[in-house]
Write a protein that binds this DNA or RNA. Structure first.
Lengths: 334, 334
DNA sequence: ACTGGTATCGATACCGGTACCGATACCAGC
DNA sequence: GCTGGTATCGGTACCGGTATCGATACCAGT
């Protein structure tokens, strides 16, 4: 009596006085069913509260209406916004997102991808281009659209939506150099696991050295980026290097922490010290001081990735893999 | 040749020289298989890169290893953290979270629940207690563990994990009254759709009136809670009521915006004006000024909800529905 | 040698849908 | 009246696993 009372298609069909097949067609809106039968089946289904079984239909067809989403962390607002974009992108398509969290762990990422594939998803959206060899193999052999997001520095398995992290880092460096800043410091968190933050850092360094400059000092901590960490690291870096005129952070959370430290310490930002974050999170423009940041289209990336999965399921022809590159905008805050 | 090359259990069985059934048992670790056959099957599976098909096993068994998670929004860090807690809670259980976003829309919530149920999930985690009649019916008839989270003010369908939003609002009001604050203002966003924020507001009001006080003014805006909105609304409310000595916000984002306004306007917080947010987000303790907030165990709630789903799948006995109530802590920031 | 018990295995019948293809009905055209 | 075409239907065979239960083998005990 557990699931026994769950209505099946066969029961609906009986109630409507047609075969299972006709009922199936009627409910799916597939062709070859008379108007009157469509109505009969639809009505019976409604009356009986028929819900359908995605497991069965997905198994029977070759593909499920699940779309796998793999992110390093959900507690990070950046990925949460990407998820929101994805949810928005698949709206009304009947696709359902399943997600897996890797915790920035390659081994775990492999397992998550593997597990995801066993659901025969309609597509996979994976964060980043840098998977382990095994994971990459899995993705290459999967006969479904795979969209890698948030990064363009590398070779994607299939489709790719994002922006060049390296270029974004470089662009910010150049913009800051353009304002006359000369003595740079860097504060970052978790660069060993967050490949994208690392690429930005490298892009930054390269641009600086092209201009004959370099980071006077860097403070790279382990663990997650938090406002608190940003505040503490900023306090420390300024204690050691009080003559910095610009601090670059691996993201906005850390930069906000830096801003808070400066406000408390009475440092004038950005006059005496420029702070540069990354992502252009919502709160940045509302801070009491002006900090620089790079506006990244997180929601748009999720949205575009979802559309690609949707699109490649419709027309089966093998077009060349989609590649959507966004151009993040530097915002120095005027 | 699409999915044709995907290895099936039958192929693994042939390679291992056993029947499908034995292979199935060997891979699942079910009993009744000899040591030697277990090894043979496991090895064959590994060599052939067998992945398994969750759709088939879920259809065959009566339940899938999917766990449905329904939240109003993913772009809100609060729910993102709940998701993280859930992900953490089901870690290693083989369960996979599927999520649905309702956008605070009851109609959409119904559809999402419906759609979710058609995956025969092992359990459902739903935000809040206030669903539409139809949606509630769906949940009641689902023969799976349903855990409603984040709210305890109402009658749950089954299990429930969270805290009383109303009590939380009241507790904050009392704490603020205890510090001698007398002239209260309220700033909130989206209260028409966010039932929980509304309950906090009501709890707040009730506590105030028990103390013979009331909100001198309220500024309730539509749309999402953002730092920007908090800043703007605070500016406006103070312009109209400069004599307030306490502003309560529906959450920390708005309160942070308020803090930023005060910093820019040179108002001393909390000496001249106390600000009270809600949730105890990470950044609160790092702000340049001290604001009050209520620490809510978001990750723990997700974790506990996930454990309940896991638990009720193991032992089938019908115990009385779990009910885990947390006691949010007021943090006045000293 | 015969019986009973335990350990191991496999054939079969599903789970709840959908694809495929053949069957049926009905009508226009010659 | 017969043929061919179109519109509708339904039977059957899956999709890739698992539950069930009967079959088989082997061994101890008498």
């Amino acid at each position: 009596m557990d699931q026994k009372n769950r209505i099946t298609l066969a029961e609906v069909a009986v109630a409507a006085g047609v075969s299972k097949m006709t009922a199936s067609r009627a409910l799916r809106g597939a062709g070859d069913v008379s108007r009157s039968n469509i109505d009969k089946v639809r009505q019976a289904a409604r009356q009986m509260g028929y819900v359908g079984n995605h497991l069965a239909s997905s198994l029977s067809g070759q593909r499920s209406s699940l779309i796998g989403v793999i992110v390093p962390s959900t507690a990070n607002i950046v990925f949460a916004e990407v998820l929101a974009g994805i949810a928005e992108g698949i709206e009304g398509s009947g696709l359902q997102p399943v997600f897996g969290v890797t915790d920035y762990d390659l081994e775990k990422e492999y397992e998550v991808i593997r597990n995801m594939l066993s659901w025969n998803p309609a597509g996979l959206i994976v964060t980043g281009l840098d998977q382990s060899r095994d994971a990459r193999l899995l993705l290459e052999n999967a006969k479904i659209p795979v969209v890698q997001i948030m990064d363009m520095d590398g070779v994607p398995v299939d489709a790719c939506v994002g922006f060049s992290q390296r270029a974004a880092g470089g662009a910010m460096a150049e913009a800051l150099l353009g304002t006359g800043r000369k003595r740079f410091g860097y504060v970052g968190c978790g660069l060993d696991a967050d490949f994208r933050a690392k690429k930005r850092f490298e892009g930054f360094q390269e641009a600086l050295s092209r201009a004959g400059r370099t980071f006077e000092t860097t403070r790279i901590a382990e663990g997650f980026s938090t406002v608190k960490a940003g505040r503490e690291l900023t306090s420390k870096i300024l204690e050691a290097n009080p003559d910095l005129d610009c601090i670059c952070y691996s993201n906005d959370d850390l930069a906000a922490g830096g801003a808070f430290h400066c406000i408390s310490a009475g440092l004038s930002v950005p006059e005496a010290l420029t702070l540069a974050g990354f992502n252009g999170l919502e709160f940045v423009k509302s801070l009491p001081v002006t900090i620089a940041t790079t506006l990244t289209p997180r929601r748009e990336i999720g949205h575009a990735a979802a559309r690609i999965v949707l699109g490649s399921n419709r027309d089966e022809q093998v077009e060349k893999p989609a590649r959507i590159e966004f151009e993040p905008k530097i915002d120095l805050g005027v």
